[in-house]
Design a protein around this nucleic acid. Structure first.
Length: 467
RNA sequence: GGUGGAGUGGCCGAGAGGCGAGGCACAGGACUGCAAAUCCUGCUACACGGGUUCAAAUCCCGUCUCCACCUCCA
């Protein structure tokens, strides 16, 4: 069996994965800055790293997964003014939207989900350490800056040279010793929230929270740090700078997911509401949206189109309906197992597209087995498909996706349809196809699909979505 | 200006020197009273121009186009 190999942004290579502690994996993922509603790009990151976490767990590791919520930053304060509510109410509002979106797409809750505002103490401690070590300074106005010129390893993740960077347009740079130094802490402004520190009252800069929280929950060194591509610089560079200047080894490897793009362009918050998770969930089930977002390799851009999403959903329903049929024929739902080819694909830096090809293969074999009546092959195919779907977080039997349908109502509906099907069967027996087709067409018009199988007719609710 | 990514068949989307990824769509066939579902067959593509090699989508040189980051970002 091939061992798990992962791509590391720092070395730009794919290497066999070796955890710092045998049998354990610690992951820190930059989660949401809760300043707006989640769109599918945000949630793709959640899905990609959820697949990573599930695969590590499936591979036998004890996974500690930390995904933070940044609930204080410039944009949150701006939006709070705009939406005329306290900044903390705004942050909570959007945090809930993210939580709901994650749940709808079956993204497992992290081991812990720390909020920036709950870790001011840890941030102050970190700044003290940095100042003691001469890596940070407080110019006296309440700001605290990190002195990037003191660091040898600064910008190694993004492979840039400090002097090549465009200078920031930062108006407060007068307090900086070097224009490229960045703020760990920002002095209080009138009307803005602030916390007391030894250097004056203020609030966190953007990057400090992640270093402080990663240290608090994962220690000085941990295995994997993840986030979107656009976080490489400056966010992750600055996290590295803060943490390593404090004497911590920090993350062993770095993983970055690519974006969802539209018309070749990165999805930005100015594109409107159409690609909000909540909007798409009106037309697609969470499991279908997840299947789509997870289907491309995590390091490849996913070019969003409505057509591609619809196709993807159709493809998923085909797999799903096979599992239901297999369950009916076998008398019990499939039991998750993993094929070697699926395992090999996942071990190759989470090659989900290759893994999906193995599902297609199993599906073809399984459908053939239904025709030939080969129950052993059918069971094997169904089990492997369910195992694969489970790892991808798209197991239709997963309780997270099973809606709370009322058993009495379901039975009643089944009874009514069986009654209609019996009438149709009687019509067919007397070759009255006009009558039998009228019954079938009537059911189709109600959104109920009829399939004639060797085991008798099956019915299912059509998933044709409304527009 | 610096750094990085991308261009693959009608569409989506892998691969990264040699054995046609896969899916969707489409066409033909099997099955069916007709459908649906399913299976079988077909569809041989890698931006452009050179080069290296027995062999290039893949490596090298050049060109074009697009995208991203450079202290707001998944």
């Amino acid at each position: 069996m091939s061992p798990l190999a992962l791509y590391d942004t720092l070395t730009r290579t794919t290497q066999p994965f070796t955890p710092l502690k045998p049998g354990e994996v610690s992951i820190y993922l930059c989660g949401a800055t809760v300043q707006g509603s989640p769109h599918i790009g945000h949630i793709r990151s959640g899905v990609n790293f959820d697949i990573l976490s599930r695969w590590l767990t499936k591979s036998g590791y004890a996974v500690t997964f930390i995904r933070n919520v940044t609930d204080i930053d410039d944009k949150i304060l701006q939006k709070a003014v705009l939406e005329q509510m306290p900044w903390w109410a705004l942050a909570m509002k959007y945090e809930r939207e993210f939580t709901n979106a994650y749940a709808a797409l079956n993204v497992l809750p992290p081991t812990y989900e720390p909020r920036a505002t709950g870790h001011i103490t840890q941030m102050i401690e970190l700044m003290k350490t940095l100042i003691e070590r001469g890596a940070a300074y407080a110019p006296g106005n309440g700001d605290v800056y990190l002195s990037v010129r003191t660091l040898d390893s600064y910008l190694t993740l993004s492979r840039q040279k400090l002097d090549d960077l465009l200078s920031s347009q930062d108006s407060e740079s007068s307090f900086k010793k070097d224009p490229r130094d960045f703020a760990l802490w920002k002095a209080a402004k009138a009307g803005e929230p602030s916390w007391p520190t030894p250097w004056g009252t203020g609030r966190p800069g953007w990057h400090l929270e992640c270093s402080a929280m990663a240290h608090a929950y994962l220690g000085e060194a941990f295995d994997i740090h993840g986030g979107g591509l656009d976080l490489i610089f400056p966010h992750h560079e600055n996290e590295i700078a803060q943490s390593q200047a404090a004497g911590y080894a920090f993350s062993n490897i770095w993983m970055h997911n690519a974006w969802v793009t539209t018309s070749g362009e990165k999805m930005s918050k100015s594109l409107g509401n159409s690609l909000r998770v909540s909007e798409l969930l009106k037309h697609f089930r969470g499991i279908e949206l997840r299947w789509y977002l997870g289907s491309a390799h995590y390091r490849s851009m996913l070019e969003y189109s409505r057509e591609a999403l619809e196709e993807s959903a159709t493809g998923f329903r085909r797999i799903e309906s096979f599992l239901y049929r297999a369950g009916e024929l076998l008398g019990a739902p499939a039991v998750a197992s993993l094929s070697q080819s699926f395992t090999d694909a996942m071990n190759d830096d989470l090659a989900v597209p290759a893994a999906l090809a193995t599902i297609s293969e199993s599906l073809r074999l399984g459908n053939s087995a239904i025709t030939s009546g080969d129950m052993a092959v059918l069971a094997k195919s169904a089990n492997e498909i369910r195992g694969a779907l489970e790892v991808l977080g798209c197991d239709p039997f997963d309780l997270s996706f099973v809606t709370g349908a009322n058993a009495d109502e379901t039975n009643a509906l089944d009874g009514v349809i069986q009654l209609a099907l019996a009438q149709r069967a009687a019509a067919r027996d007397r070759k009255d196809f006009a009558a039998s087709d009228a019954i079938r067409d009537g059911l189709i018009a109600l959104g109920i699909t009829i399939e004639d199988t060797p085991q008798g007719p099956r019915w299912s609710i059509s998933r044709t979505e409304e527009r």
